[in-house]
Simulated assay, not measured.
Amino acid sequence: MIDTIQLNFARCGDRGVIIRVGDHCHHDEHAIELERRLLELGFVEGAQVEMLHEGLFGRDPIAMKVDDMRVALRRHEAASLSVRLESVIAA
């Protein structure tokens, strides 16, 4: 089973691959600007992500590893990213 979620629903320790950046809603200027900023930060399709930390109040902001760098985002910004989670096999 493949789990695809929006990144804002990820929990600490979750790992996956970005499969979609942005809402692809090209009539909303805010959505276009957010998508551009995320791409500039390295949130591109195929990038490996790992959730590292959640803030204390409302679990916001979140810190994650994107390929080889660490980035913090607000949860409403992370909602623009779709991630395919890696399945964890218990040994």
Rank of each mutant, 00 (worst) to 15 (best):
V49W: 02
L38K: 04
L7K: 02
A47E: 08
V17I: 15
L41Q: 14
L81T: 13
V44K: 15
T4C: 07
G16W: 03
M64C: 13
I89P: 00
R20D: 11
G46M: 10
I18A: 03
E33C: 05
H24T: 01
I32S: 01
L7I: 03
M51K: 06
L73V: 00
E35K: 13
H76G: 04
T4R: 11
H76F: 06
A31R: 11
L41T: 10
K65F: 02
I19P: 12
H76E: 06
S82C: 13
H24K: 12
D14F: 10
R37P: 03
C25P: 00
L38M: 05
D67S: 08
E33D: 09
S87L: 07
R20S: 10
R20C: 09
H24N: 14
H24A: 08
K65G: 03
R37G: 02
L73R: 09
H27W: 09
G22F: 04
C25A: 07
H53Q: 15
E40F: 06
L81P: 02
T4E: 15
R59I: 01
I18T: 12
D3S: 13
A47G: 03
E50T: 15
A90Y: 13
R70Y: 08
D23M: 09
A72C: 14
S80R: 04
G46K: 02
V44P: 08
R36H: 06
R84E: 06
V66C: 13
G42P: 07
A31W: 03
S82R: 11
H76P: 02
A79E: 07
D60F: 02
E45C: 11
G16P: 06
H24P: 03
R74G: 12
A63V: 13
L56P: 09
C25L: 12
K65Q: 15
V21A: 07
L73I: 08
E29C: 01
R74H: 14
A47Q: 01
D68S: 14
A72K: 15
E50Q: 13
V83S: 01
R20W: 03
G58L: 07
A90S: 12
V66G: 05
D3P: 02
R74S: 08
H24Q: 09
S80Q: 06
F9A: 09
V83D: 02
R75A: 14
M51V: 15
G58I: 08
A72W: 10
S80T: 00
L41F: 11
L39N: 10
P61E: 12
M69L: 10
H24I: 04
S87M: 07
L56W: 03
G16S: 03
Q48C: 06
I32C: 01
A78W: 00
P61D: 04
G58H: 06
V21F: 09
D28S: 03
R20Q: 15
M51A: 15
L41P: 04
L7M: 15
M64G: 10
D68K: 14
R15Q: 15
R11H: 09
L73G: 06
F57V: 08
I19L: 05
K65T: 09
F9S: 14
D68T: 11
R70N: 13
G22S: 07
R11I: 08
N8C: 10
A63E: 12
E35L: 03
M64R: 09
L85Y: 02
E45V: 15
G42M: 04
M69R: 15
R75F: 01
